[in-house]
Write a protein that binds this DNA or RNA. Structure first.
Ligand SMILES: [Mn+2]
Ligand SMILES: [Mn+2]
Ligand SMILES: [Zn+2]
Ligand SMILES: [Zn+2]
Lengths: 136, 136
DNA sequence: ATATAGGTCTTGAATCATTCTAAACAATAA
DNA sequence: TTATTGTTTAGAATGATTCAAGACCTATAT
């Protein structure tokens, strides 16, 4: 779990501010992905919902995650080692490290990973860096 | 198409050297992906086969691509903007640029894109860089 | 040359992630 | 209240890839 866990009312404000109608399902999912989970897959969100919400369909999980991505509150990642998407509450520019020993993905601060290009005639919009390795 | 197109006999030698039995289907696919196509998907390989080979099943396309990847002759990529895999004959370290205007993927020479890290306690095995942008 | 054995190819079914459809529901406005 | 609009649901559909079973080849040994 994470350190900064927001109250449901605060989640609600965030959803409204982003133009997303704050339904019970959306508040629950948003709270989970924004302040409890770490790069979860839709399946992991569903498992969490099955254990912590009265009843929620898989379609609602996908609908809600897509809505949060569209609203700019989440970023969807397609990591090259996984065949399912993961959802990231960290929407600032950062990179990822896959620890191949554990299969876990860690965020990398752009201060620690610098990408410099000598490309001519290319307007760069976004850079994805995915490092595979193992932590000591 | 590419400049350096190998003869079927030369493809055959490459397959044998890599421990892959050189069947007609494998020679045809290998020749296409190694010296004609650019980051093709399995579907594109199948389309090419439908137009240039008497008869080939989708399973054979996948089996062959997997065999070539296992033999180290190809690299399989899961680019974040595509839901299907692409196969790369360039097995040296290099990065990729997606031109969002055209949807085309271009190879980037590592001489033009440098990644430097200050990570402590991480043994890096591989670095993927995927740049989104547009060419002038 | 023939038989045998092992690898290869094909068809179609199965699997998995994700989206779609249509109906049921909920909240809101007139 | 009734109309309107947006949301959730179950299940079907889709698309990429793999699996399974049998047919087909090819190499090698007799
Ligand atoms: Mn993927
Ligand atoms: Mn596609
Ligand atoms: Zn992240
Ligand atoms: Zn490439």
């Amino acid at each position: 779990m994470k350190q900064s866990c927001l109250a449901p009312s605060e989640i609600e404000s965030r959803l409204k501010a982003a133009g997303v109608q704050p339904t019970a399902q959306r508040i629950a999912i948003a709270r989970y992905v924004l302040c409890e989970a770490d790069h979860p897959t839709a399946e992991q969100v569903k498992s969490w919902a099955d254990a912590n919400f009265p009843k929620m369909s898989m379609a609602t999980v996908y609908n809600t995650l897509n809505a949060l991505v569209d609203a700019g509150l989440l970023k969807k990642h397609a990591f090259p080692h996984l065949n399912e998407a993961t959802y990231d509450d960290n929407i600032t520019e950062h990179y990822h490290l896959l620890d191949e020993k554990t299969g876990r993905v860690f965020d990398l601060d752009p201060a620690d990973v610098k990408v410099t290009t000598k490309l001519k005639g290319v307007r760069i919009k976004e850079v994805d860096v995915f490092i595979r390795g193992s932590r000591a």
